[in-house]
Amino acid sequence: MDHILLVTGFFILIVTFFATEKSLHLLELIFGWLLVVILHDAYFTLVSLNLKMVVPSMRLSDFFVRIFAHKFITPTIVVWAVDLMNSSRLARHKWSWYLFFTALLILLNMMLRRLDILKDASIWEPWVTFSKAPLLIAAAWLAMLAYRRVLGKDGALHEFR
């Protein structure tokens, strides 16, 4: 039941993301999405395979939920955060979106643990979970800013917003 609720939540999030208007260019959104998947993959490989801090569940249903969360939900949240931060004019609005989406990412991570899709090893440090979310959004934001300059140089962006 918990899995069904979680996956339903995932679908609502994705449909809402695609249904709302974006301030970023489509190429920027795609670039951001791909980048987040790579960063998240690198992070997950390090903590699960090298540091053995996280043990992914061996059940096939859990495996698919984890892949869906890592490849679709995490990038959606991060790209959405960057898009709303980009469209906000005031700094406090940018910070509010940043904190809101950081909290959302942490919540997603905690739900995956609550449902035993990811299991913490005894050496797991909670600060690693909490530091990943803000760093991921900040890294994606910086990289997408750099990509915007490349798009501008290629003549595909009307103006730098």
Binding site: L27, L151, K153, D154
Partner: peptide, 23 residues
């Protein structure tokens, strides 16, 4: 090729490979 297109294609290729390796 335009740099913005090359970057996306290179990232996409890396994404697919890394994702498949991780699964």
């Amino acid at each position: 090729l335009p740099a913005s297109v090359s970057m996306i294609m290179m990232l996409f290729s890396l994404d697919l490979a890394f994702s498949l390796d991780n699964t």
